[in-house]
């Protein structure tokens, strides 16, 4: 450890603002882009699932009407 105390560590030899701002903004930006990528991924998976469910519903509905129609005819 290069610093004598925690206080000295946070103080950074008088450059606290610049050092901590740099590191803070860096980690914030990195976190944000990871978060954005993950949220997009989740959203896309959800959309795909919804689309699949919708098509499933359409298919079953079609089947049902078909059965109804044939039922009436007979």
């Amino acid at each position: 450890m290069q610093f004598d105390s925690w206080q000295a560590f946070w103080h950074m030899g008088g450059y606290a603002f610049y050092v901590w701002a740099s590191f803070g903004v860096t980690f914030l930006a990195m976190g944000l882009i990871v978060l954005n990528s993950m949220m997009t991924h989740k959203k896309l998976l959800k959309e795909v699932a919804q689309e699949a469910a919708r098509q499933q519903r359409i298919a079953t509905a079609k089947q049902a009407t078909k059965q109804n129609l044939t039922g009436e005819e007979v």
Partner: peptide, 11 residues
Amino acid sequence: QGDSFRIIYIH
């Protein structure tokens, strides 16, 4: 540069 140079590790 004292401690300000520590920014180098991300810059």
